[in-house]
């Protein structure tokens, strides 16, 4: 590491393990970590749900039920329609994003050093610092949002809403423009918020790691503070998704 300059050290930490060229590049680290975490946690949750009994719940089942109830209560407060999709969607987002964000708490050099010894040069361990992931999630949410709009309002209802809200039928083109901007802003803000927060947090960890011995008193407070951001960002992503779903399901 002594051979690296500060700039090299930082950019080394911000380069993905990738294959392919141009657009057809795949960030293997993002795909592996996010997929692995997801398979692990959702597999474990499916296991808990399969074993779930109405009797006294065990530790893991109890924990899963607690998280699911927390998410479900948020959904019930915000989303007033009936949907088999919204609560599972919100639960998936909250748990998955939380876990991927939590990868940030592993010391920045620890896992890269481990994989470095097995010959891998670059490896980013926090999938949510990859905009590909956050945009993939937000665009999926957006696609569901559009689908919900069509299902609950129909083509006519959706068109009517897009053309008449908020200024009435006489200003239809302006209404439509407003609506397009509003809807396009949704996935972008969703993706960039999560990406920006996690990227900045990761960057601060990297900069702290550059301070030599002074990183010791600094890394811990930042990690503690970062726990808050990790949870908060997962919660915000989930909450906004639910809000968008309720906007799609309810006509104004």
């Amino acid at each position: 590491m002594s051979t690296q300059t500060t700039g090299e050290y930082i950019s080394h930490h911000l380069t993905n393990l990738h294959v392919g060229h141009g657009f057809w590049t795949f960030h293997l680290d993002t795909l592996i970590i996010s997929g692995g975490l997801g398979l692990l946690v959702f597999g474990a949750m499916a296991y808990a749900a399969r074993q779930a009994t109405a009797g006294v719940p065990g530790g893991w089942q109890n924990f899963v039920e607690m998280v699911a109830t927390l998410v479900d209560n948020q959904v019930k407060d915000t989303f007033h329609g009936k949907s088999a999709l919204v609560t599972p969607l919100a639960l998936t987002i909250f748990v998955w994003v939380f876990l991927m964000n939590a990868m940030d708490l592993i010391p920045v050099d620890f896992l890269p050093q481990v994989v470095h010894h097995s010959g891998v040069e670059h490896f980013k361990f926090v999938p949510t610092t990859d905009p590909n992931l956050t945009f993939a999630m937000s665009l999926t949410v957006f696609a569901i949002y559009i689908g919900m709009n069509f299902i609950h309002k129909g083509v006519g209802g959706l068109l009517h809403e897009a053309l008449t809200v908020p200024f009435g039928p006489w200003l239809a083109p302006i209404n439509l423009m407003f609506r397009i901007v509003e809807d396009v802003a949704k996935p972008i803000s969703l993706a960039l918020r999560l990406f920006g927060n996690m990227y900045a947090g990761e960057m601060v960890f990297i900069l702290i790691a550059l301070l030599g011995v002074w990183q010791l008193p600094l890394a811990l407070p930042w990690a503690l503070f970062h726990i808050l951001i990790i949870t908060l960002q997962a919660f915000v992503f989930m909450m906004l998704t639910v809000v968008y779903m309720s906007m799609a399901a309810e006509s104004h």
């Binding site: 960030h27 795909l31 996010s34 749900a49 609560t87 590909n132 993939a136």
Partner: peptide, 27 residues
């Protein structure tokens, strides 16, 4: 932004499906 997007979307869809089918209803 690159093709990782599609991979991630597939992961996301898979996990939503798992939660929707195997986690939430039995729970």
């Amino acid at each position: 932004i690159n093709a990782t997007l599609f991979g991630q979307a597939i992961w996301f869809a898979l996990f939503i499906w798992i939660t929707m089918k195997y986690v939430w209803p039995p729970l």
